[in-house]
Design a protein around this nucleic acid. Sequence first.
DNA 1: AACGTACACTTAT
DNA 2: ATAAGTGTACGTT
Length: 149
Amino acid sequence: MEMTGGSCRFGLWYVHVWWKDDTVYQVRFSPEPLDGPVHPGIVRFLAGKTGDLSYLHSVATEPDHQYSDIYRRVRDIPYGKTSTYGEIAALVGTSPRLVGLAMKRNPTPLVVPCHRVVSVAGIGGFSPSVDIKEALLAMEKKNKLRLIQ
DNA sequence: AACGTACACTTAT
DNA sequence: ATAAGTGTACGTT
């Protein structure tokens, strides 16, 4: 498969995106830039100009993926809202810890908005840094009224 | 603080 | 191939 990769800024971080057309293969956060283009929809999302990434296809939700059930539920969480590991677990009939594991292994953050899954006790985890999760949630909170999908 | 949970992964049989 | 040991971006008591 012939995909292109590139990065754009989000705060102090670079967001690496590997994609082709409207299919996204990998998204990850890095302190280092990667030369190349990012899907314009993701650029707009990170700039707070849209909350709608529903037209993007992620490899994470393909039926053969180990956690596709979990990732599909997570995609249903609306912009500016959050759910918990336990709520997602109840929807698919598994344990909160497995949901946490699936989030850690999410190949396409943003497209599968794992940042909207928090713990009952606090914000939960995010790699490589929970700062990114906090920033994404703050951005969505700020923009949600303006960006009603 | 300890335990329960539902796995996944590694290492040892 | 199977089993045991260890680890998880959690939740409940």
